[in-house]
Lab assay of single mutants.
Amino acid sequence: CSVCSEPIMPEPGRDETVRVVALDKNFHMKCYKCEDCGKPLSIEADDNGCFPLDGHVLCRKCHTARA
């Protein structure tokens, strides 16, 4: 995971895991958050999703503030 540096592995008792890929980086679902404010990001293409800027994973509000 690009945030916590832990491997993305299935939880005990499970055969599969879910990971998020954004900007060629891999994330646990729980680690997929705005780099500035820490708001959890949605994997859907909506207002709560990722608004990347200069290689950073940001929420819409933080993207607008940086732009």
Results as ranks from 00 to 15, higher is better:
Val20Gln: 06
Met9Asp: 03
Gly49Val: 07
Asp15Ala: 05
Lys39Gln: 13
Cys37Arg: 01
Cys4Arg: 00
Pro7Tyr: 09
Arg19Ala: 08
Arg14Val: 09
Arg19Cys: 07
Asn48Met: 07
Ala67His: 13
His28Cys: 14
Lys33Phe: 06
Gly38Thr: 09
Leu41Phe: 09
Pro52Phe: 10
Thr64Tyr: 11
Cys4Trp: 00
His28Arg: 00
Cys50Phe: 06
Met29Thr: 13
Ser42Asn: 14
Ala22Ile: 11
Cys62Gln: 00
Glu11Asp: 06
Asp36Lys: 03
Glu35Gly: 05
Val57Arg: 07
His56Ala: 12
Gly49Cys: 06
Glu44Tyr: 06
Arg66Ala: 15
Arg60Met: 03
Ala22Asn: 07
Cys4Met: 00
Pro52Glu: 11
Glu16Pro: 06
Gly13His: 06
Met9His: 08
Cys34Arg: 03
Asn48Thr: 13
Glu44Val: 05
Cys59Thr: 00
Leu58Ser: 04
Ile43Thr: 13
Ser42Cys: 06
Ser2His: 03
Cys59Pro: 01
Lys25Glu: 03
Glu6Asp: 11
Leu58Trp: 03
Ser42Pro: 11
Ser2Asn: 09
Ile43Ala: 13
Glu44Phe: 02
Cys50Pro: 11
Asn26Met: 12
Arg14Asp: 13
Ala22Asp: 07
Pro7Lys: 14
Pro40Gly: 14
Cys59Val: 00
Pro12Ile: 07
Leu23Asn: 14
Cys37Val: 01
Leu58Thr: 05
His28Thr: 01
Asn48Asp: 06
Asp15Leu: 08
His56Met: 09
Met9Trp: 05
Arg60Cys: 13
Cys62Met: 00
Met9Cys: 14
Arg14Cys: 13
Pro52Trp: 07
Pro40Asn: 11
His28Leu: 00
Val20Glu: 11
Val18Trp: 09
Asn26Val: 11
Asn26Asp: 13
Pro7Asp: 15
Ala22Trp: 09
Cys59Lys: 00
Lys30Thr: 12
Asp54Ser: 06
Cys59Gln: 01
Asp36Pro: 05
Lys39Pro: 00
Pro12Lys: 15
Arg66Gly: 11
Leu41Met: 12
Cys50Trp: 04
Cys31Phe: 13
Glu35Ala: 07
Leu41Asn: 02
Phe27Asn: 00
Phe51Lys: 13
Val57Glu: 03
Lys25Ser: 05
Arg66Lys: 05
Met29Ile: 14
Glu44Gln: 09
Gly49Asn: 10
Glu44Lys: 14
Asp54Trp: 03
Lys33Leu: 05
Val57His: 03
Arg66Glu: 03
His56Asn: 06
His63Lys: 04
Gly13Met: 09
His63Ser: 12
Leu23Ser: 12
Lys30Asn: 10
Leu53Pro: 04
Val57Phe: 06
Gly38Tyr: 13
Tyr32Ile: 00
Asp54Met: 06
Ser5Phe: 11
Pro52Met: 11
Leu53Thr: 08
Glu16Ala: 11
Glu6Arg: 14
Val21Asp: 15
Leu41Gln: 03
Pro52Leu: 13
Gly38Glu: 14
Ile43Glu: 14
Leu41Lys: 04
Gly49Tyr: 05
Asp24Ile: 00
Glu35Trp: 05
Pro12Cys: 15
Gly55Lys: 13
Phe27Met: 12
Leu23Pro: 04
Met9Pro: 07
Cys1Pro: 00
Ser5Ala: 08
Lys61Ala: 10
Cys62Gly: 01
Asp15Met: 04
Pro7Met: 14
Lys33Asp: 03
Met9Val: 12
Lys30His: 12
His28Met: 00
Ala22Val: 12
Met9Glu: 06
Pro40Ala: 13
Ser5Gln: 09
Glu44Ile: 03
Ser42Trp: 02
Ser5Met: 06
Asp24Leu: 03
His63Arg: 05
His63Ala: 05
Asp36Val: 07
Lys61Met: 12
Glu6Ile: 05
Pro7Gln: 01
Ser5Ile: 03
His56Pro: 02
Lys39Val: 10
Val3Ser: 06
Thr64Val: 15
Cys59Glu: 01
Pro52Gln: 13
Arg66Gln: 14
Arg14Trp: 04
Ile43Asp: 12
His28Glu: 01
Leu41Tyr: 03
His56Phe: 07
Glu16Ile: 02
Cys34Ala: 02
Lys61Thr: 13
Met29Gln: 14
Arg19Ile: 02
Lys33Tyr: 02
Met29His: 06
Met9Lys: 05
Pro12Phe: 14
Arg14Ala: 12
Leu41His: 04
Cys34Met: 04
Ala67Ile: 15
Phe27His: 01
His56Gln: 12
Pro52His: 11
Arg66Pro: 08
Lys30Ile: 02
Glu16Val: 02
Lys39Gly: 11
Asp15Tyr: 06
Ala22Gln: 12
Val57Leu: 12
Asp54Gly: 08
Arg19Gln: 08
Phe51Glu: 15
Arg19Asn: 07
